[in-house]
Nucleic acid binder design. Structure first.
Lengths: 341, 341
DNA sequence: CGATTCACCAAAAACGTTTTTGGAGCCGAT
DNA sequence: ATCGGCTCCAAAAACGTTTTTGGTGAATCG
């Protein structure tokens, strides 16, 4: 490995001079600059980023955490969009991406891992994890490490989150169903803990209240973002209350589960039962029938997250404010007016 | 940041002693070990990986390069499977993943980027890039940096590649079509340069020769792994030679293009024309009709790549040998016997 | 002409570790 | 008693940079 010392020796100058020329500082004459630059090129020199990081305390690296389900942790429905967006904006700003995967650290937390690796900032895209993580999230939030989460409400001095306007999105879906004439609309929710789930449920609820139909808790079940669990929940609901004419599921994979349940009950979608999903993921497009759903701007979510992070990093007194992106209704073939009885 | 020095001071020992206890060396008495360990915990100490890397010349980091098409470089059809697999095996072995995204380095090559960052090894998953890259690949191959490529034939002291057995896979597809009774089978190839494309073409060719039908170059067009280009090529072929009863496309996205072309020519798939793809990607499953295709073991490809890399890293005299994984035919609804004229 | 500034550079400290070197103290064997 | 070999530890070197400090000689200013 050719170092700054080798250049210094060959050029007959000190290492500090080499460093200053290589970093385009003043305080070095054109002649020596020339010579040093030429020798650096001859020796095919490139700086050692590790050494540089050690003294500068800046690694030009953005850390990322993803969920860690066994056998594949990259299964978040937004993974591809988010990482593509992040790569784009972070790359243009001169950063690389460090994906935390090392599993040989038992006692590690998000915070200690970030500190160990000295990442400049960190992005979180987690799937629904247990309660154990919440302590870790709080620790991270208070650590002072620049941090942006997606869909998880963190807020601190150097820390915030981005999400879709899930409440408004859910209302869009409900307004669509209501305007088609549906009155008995079931809801397959996510879980009990995530803000995402909570907001979508609120949207469902409020839309019903505002339309003067009223909210009926017996029409609500949780599907835990799982196709199978949603299928089961929908099967139970439709068996218990055959008057249901529409389902609104809080994710597309769950909506697919609902469609499956209807199939098994020999009900046609949308002729007998309408179904609306959420996310506009690939599943929505490829489902039979293609799903009417609420589109989230997944790529923009990632882009906004990355931009916020960079702002925190590069503007010393930037006060991060959480961002909410609008959703849009995408009408496909899984919804139509209810049959007249 | 709490350092080894702080611990040393508080414990009344030297930094070297702290280092030795923290790294479980011998040469330290049970009493001092106790004390140091306790103080380390009290101070909430964790080692600085950057400093460690500098002296040990080992970063416990695996670099990854992906294609860099504008606006999304993670569009390789195997991206998700490969990165999931890599994460799994590399993470269990105690490594993190560095994804090179920094675009502020004009003169950089794969090799210099790896050296700058001091990654321990590197994985390549590139989409078809121009010729300019080949020099860079050769440089990397000869650099001595541990390196595994996917689908690109690199071989060196610390460097090799993994791929599917594309030749055998293509033959599987052809044997299927031939056994159904097809005789006039067109081929939509990839490009002129990649080994992948070449091997699949050979498989197509040899299958025809062995069946004594013979190879007819006028039945071959390139689609450059693009749906649109493949659609166009197929349209031209079927217009020029309406006797064609089947298409074999060297990728699923291209096969989708072929199906589209048939649609536009008012030909039914598979009733009028059979279509076979390659890869078994999502597109194959979701195409109308679902595609008969040749499955690649995408996850295993990534796993094998990661395993090979780790072997190079951890066994000093491991001589890497390139790996070839078998393909399997997946029969869906895009193939059937040809109409009897 | 003396004092001040300026352009240029070398030397050394610093970053937080690991690794090497060497040495003090003790025990047992000669 | 002396030597050799332990066990335990401190001191210092090393990793490859950047940054701080300080200094020399020449030019400028009063």
């Amino acid at each position: 490995m050719v170092t700054i010392k080798d250049i210094a020796k060959k050029a007959g100058v000190s290492v500090s001079t080499v460093s200053r020329t290589l970093n385009n500082y003043s305080d070095v004459s054109p002649q020596t600059r020339q010579k040093v630059l030429q020798i650096a090129r001859e020796l095919n020199y490139f700086p050692n980023a590790v050494a540089k990081s050690l003294v500068q305390k800046k690694t030009h690296t953005i850390g990322m955490f993803f969920g860690n389900k066994v056998n594949s942790g990259f299964d978040h429905p937004f993974f591809l969009d988010v990482i593509s967006a992040v790569r784009e904006v972070v790359g243009n700003a001169g950063y690389d991406l460090l994906i935390f995967t090392n599993k040989n650290k038992e006692r590690a937390t998000y915070t200690t891992l970030c500190r160990e690796r000295s990442v400049d900032g960190v992005l979180l895209l987690l799937t629904g994890e247990g309660k154990k993580r919440t302590e870790q999230l709080i620790e991270l939030q208070e650590s002072g490490i620049p941090c942006i989460a997606i869909d998880i409400p963190l807020e601190g001095r150097k820390c915030t989150y981005v999400e879709s306007d899930n409440y408004a999105g859910a209302k869009l879906a409900m307004e669509h169903l209501l305007s088609l004439g549906h009155r008995k609309i079931a809801f397959i929710g996510g879980d009990e803990i995530s803000k995402t789930s909570f907001d979508r449920l609120r949207g469902y609820q409020d839309a019903l209240m505002e339309s003067r139909i009223g909210f009926d808790p017996s029409l609500v079940r949780l599907g835990y973002f799982s196709r199978e669990k949603a299928r089961q929940a929908a099967a139970e609901l439709i068996a218990a209350q055959p008057q249901i004419t529409a389902f609104f599921a809080a994710s597309d994979v769950m909506a697919c589960g609902v469609v499956e349940a209807m199939d098994q009950h020999h009900l046609q979608v949308p002729a007998d039962v309408s179904v609306v999903g959420f996310d506009d993921s690939k599943e929505a497009e490829h489902c039979r029938p293609p799903l009417t759903t609420v589109r989230q701007q997944k790529y923009e979510l990632g882009r906004e997250a990355a931009r916020l992070l960079l702002a925190i990093l590069e503007k010393p007194d930037f006060r991060p404010k959480h961002a909410q992106l609008p959703c849009a209704l995408v009408i496909r073939s899984s919804t139509c007016p209810p049959k007249q009885p």
